[in-house]
């Protein structure tokens, strides 16, 4: 009961201190207005008038992530890639194809999961493909698709990945393909510059003041926002298969891993 006494006193103390702070007006005016920088980003996120400055996407967060501060996100993707390489290093020497899995959960759970997985994949693809129009994007879609790997590992067993044809090397290849697609989009302006002699910048999206290079904003009258849709789809591939690798490794049974890594039990 001491636990709940401490809990109630923490909550009450927080409320009382908040009341005293408000009464003394100690924090000043808060929650009234946003900064000038925020107004600038909101003004320029979809603005057909200032074509040299805008990202031409109605979704302010995606346009900051992949256009205004795109190089930040590029390096963060590399950090993400390296973290999963580090996790793979701990499991070096484990061959995934030799495992024999269990039976999974009961029939009812398995049938319901079988119905849920296609819905989950459809939602993930739609979040990635509409990332420049509605809330969503590559990171969100990748996290949603990663739930599929958890469902597979828990309801069926670790061997279900092999039955579906998803091996570790295939997953590594697919996420490397995602990273390569991002690199391709980033270096396209440079290749264009080398071929034609027009001045361009790395990771450029639209025309700038001193550069006439631009990706198309519309295809067949549909807004695709230049590089944003391609970067979202590539990031979706990289993030989702990165998490597939992690949960494939985590779902391996411990005895199998110990046997294959070859650690002694004397410790």
């Amino acid at each position: 009961m001491r636990k709940y006494f401490v809990l109630v006193s923490i909550v009450l103390a927080t409320v009382v201190i908040a009341y005293i702070t408000t009464y003394l007006r100690a924090l000043g005016p808060i929650g009234l207005d946003t900064r000038y920088l925020a107004k600038l980003f909101l003004m320029l996120t979809y603005n057909p008038v200032y074509r040299e400055l805008t990202a031409m996407s109605p979704e302010a967060v995606t346009s900051i992530v992949w256009d205004f501060r795109g190089v930040d996100t590029l390096y963060e993707t590399v950090v993400f890639y390296m973290a999963i390489i580090a996790a793979l290093t701990i499991y070096r020497g484990v061959s995934y194809s030799s495992i024999w899995g269990g039976y999974g959960l009961s029939l009812i759970v398995r049938v319901v999961t079988k119905l849920l997985i296609p819905i989950n994949i459809a939602i993930a693809v739609s979040i990635a493909a509409h990332g420049h129009l509605t809330p969503g994007g590559g990171f969100q879609a990748g996290a949603v698709l990663a739930v599929v790997s958890v469902l597979l590992a828990v309801t069926y067993s670790a061997s279900s990945f092999i039955k579906l044809g998803v091996s570790l090397s295939k997953a590594v290849a697919l996420r490397s393909a995602g990273l390569l697609a991002i690199a391709l989009v980033v270096f396209t302006p440079i290749v264009f510059s080398a071929l034609t002699g027009v001045q361009t910048y790395i990771m450029q999206n639209y025309v700038k003041i001193d550069s006439s290079f631009s990706f198309p904003t519309h295809v067949w009258n549909q807004l695709i926002s230049g590089t944003l849709i391609w970067l979202n789809l590539a990031e979706f591939l990289a993030v989702s298969f990165g998490f597939f690798i992690i949960f494939m490794l985590l779902s391996l049974r411990e005895e199998v891993v110990r046997e294959q890594i070859g650690e002694k039990d004397e410790h």
């Binding site: 963060e76 950090v79 973290a83 990171f139 990748g142 996290a143």
Partner: peptide, 10 residues
């Protein structure tokens, strides 16, 4: 947004 995904990987 990026901090959450990288935090998850780490």
């Amino acid at each position: 947004l990026t901090a959450i995904v990288i935090g998850l990987a780490v």
